[in-house]
Simulated assay, not measured.
Amino acid sequence: MTWGLDGKLALVTGGAGGIGEEICFALAESGARVVLHDLQNAPRASVCERINAAGFAHEVTTTFGDLADLDALQKDVVSLVAEIGPVSVLVNNAAINPRGPIETYALEDFVRVQAINAHAAFVLSQAVMPGMRKAGGAIVNIGSQTLAGGVPDMVPYVSAKGALLGLTRSLAREAGPYGVRVNMVSPGAIPTDLERRVWADQLARVEAEVVAKQSLKFRGSARDVANAVLFLASEKSRFITGHELNVNGGWHMG
C-alpha cells in the first residue's frame, strides 16, 4: 500500500519503546524518514537498531531531550529543522502518568505532567508549523480513552490529555487553510511492557477485566494504534482533521 510518505520527515516523541516504538516502525515501513525523540537515557539506540534491521528505505535516526524543559525543546527543534529540513509529520506521543489521589500531588508534579504531556506538543507544533504551512503536513497527537472518564487517581494526566484535545481541534481549524491536518488517536488499554511489569502477578485478571469492558473480545496491540497514526499521517486521510480516533476495541464509543 502506498501511503504518500516516501522520503517525508517524521518526528515522533517518546519513540524509544511501547506504542512510540511501533509508531516509528510503521512510519519507517511506509517510507518516511523517521526521527525518534526521547530522553537521553532511554533505549533509543537499541530501538533504532531493531527497526533498521528490517531494511527500510530510510534508517530511523534519534535525538534526545527532556520535554519538560520547554525552552531547550524549542531551541532544539528549531535547530533540528534547520539541519535536516522541514517536518512533514509530527507525532506527539510522549507522556508520563503518575497515579494517586488529587491531594497526593505536589504542584510541581502537576506542572511537569502538563509540560511533558501537553505543553511540549504546543512547542513542537509551533516550531514545525512554518514548514508545514509551505508544503502541507500532518500532526497526530496521542490522547487517551481516560478522557471519557471512569478512571480515578489520574487527574494531572487526564487534564493534560484534555488540553491536547483542545490543541488538536483549535490548531486543525487554524492550520487547515494551509493544507495542514491535525488529529488525535486515543488508545484504550493496550498491552505493553509497562503493563506486564506493573501487573506481573495479576495479568490474567487485568486481561479479563479489559476484555469484559470492550465490545471486541480481544486485546489490541501497539501496532493497532500505530496503524491509526499512520492512516492519519498519510494522504489516505486527506479530508480528515480535528478528529479524535478512538482505538479501544469499543470500550468507549463517542
Rank of each mutant, 00 (worst) to 15 (best):
T146W: 15
G4D: 02
L11F: 15
S79Y: 03
I96L: 05
P187W: 03
A82Q: 12
D153V: 11
G250V: 10
R205Q: 14
K134R: 07
V229G: 00
D66Q: 11
N227R: 15
P86I: 11
P43G: 05
G150V: 10
G85N: 06
E49G: 06
A54W: 14
L73S: 07
A121K: 02
E59N: 15
S88H: 14
L124P: 02
K236P: 03
P86H: 04
M184F: 08
V128Q: 01
R44F: 11
L70K: 07
G7D: 12
A228H: 02
H37M: 13
H243R: 13
Q202P: 06
R223A: 10
A16E: 12
S79F: 03
L36Q: 06
V140N: 03
G149N: 06
V35K: 00
E235S: 08
E207D: 15
L167N: 02
D6L: 12
V225Y: 05
R169K: 15
L80P: 05
V206Y: 07
I142S: 00
T146C: 08
G136E: 09
I116E: 06
S30V: 12
L5E: 06
R205C: 00
D38C: 06
V151M: 13
D193W: 10
T192M: 01
T168E: 02
M184V: 08
G137I: 10
